[in-house]
Write a protein that binds this DNA or RNA. Structure first.
Lengths: 128, 128
DNA sequence: GCATGACATAACCAAAGAATTATATAACCC
DNA sequence: GGGTTATATAATTCTTTGGTTATGTCATGC
């Protein structure tokens, strides 16, 4: 599967509060479906479905322990999601620093050429 | 709004490839709806809807420039999402380190009490 | 004032998602 | 083997989502 589809599945899985709570629980170690279901006011099949979503997104994998199917957290998709966010946040920050630099530059420029002519029209929204 | 609802909205917004592409574009600076729409084989209203989703999640805010409504990226929701992921990844890692320690401990124990009696039943899936 | 360009809104549709209840499966325990 | 426990699957319902086309709005520029 492509990275973009991974991310689709991962972010979609993370978009549900029940599923995030399940993930949070699983950071503390493996748990069976029943254990995961306990805190929620929700039917067992509903929890099973949530787990299936997490599993299909690769966020969770499962073992076998008698009748139990213990769930454990898989770090990779979380890492991919984090990585996407970090990467774009950095791009954005970099842009901001360039903007800062540009603003400084413009300020200097303005000092140099002060009051040559009035600005034509004030436009809100800085455009590239 | 509660943090959990923020996260619902943010992750849901991030779960769509078109919206992630829009975000990626916006790391490079503001853009109008038309500019954002250009790369996609999709109607303008479709893009407007995606932007509305991003806006309602707080990921994007908009200015006014004549008839244009330039979009810019808002870093806060991205930061919140990243923070949630980082936090839980750390919890998970910590757990892993404890598990490592435990495994070491058990290994030592096993060396000390070697072959006292055979294990009762092999159970797959480590339970807490 | 009127045509144009940029965008939003409305009405609609198909597909996906989140829940339910009822039922099946499958391993254990006596 | 039969009851119990853990979990999965099926059928159903309701809502949300992601797209469409058609139309409305509003600022601009001639």
């Amino acid at each position: 599967m492509l990275l973009t589809q991974h991310l689709d599945a991962t972010f979609a899985a993370l978009a549900d509060p029940t599923r995030r709570a399940i993930i949070a629980r699983l950071t503390q170690g493996e748990a069976s479906v029943m254990e995961l279901a306990r805190p929620f006011d929700m039917s067992q099949p509903a929890i099973s479905k949530h787990i299936k979503v997490l599993e299909q997104a690769g966020l969770v994998s499962r073992g076998q322990d008698a009748q139990r199917r213990p769930c454990r957290l898989e770090p990779k998709p979380l890492a991919e999601a984090t990585s996407w966010l970090e990467y774009h946040r950095e791009l954005f920050e970099a842009r901001f620093q360039r903007l800062d630099a540009l603003l400084e530059e413009m300020k200097a420029e303005r000092r140099a050429t002060a009051k040559r002519k009035p600005t034509v029209k004030s436009r809100k929204g800085v455009r590239k």
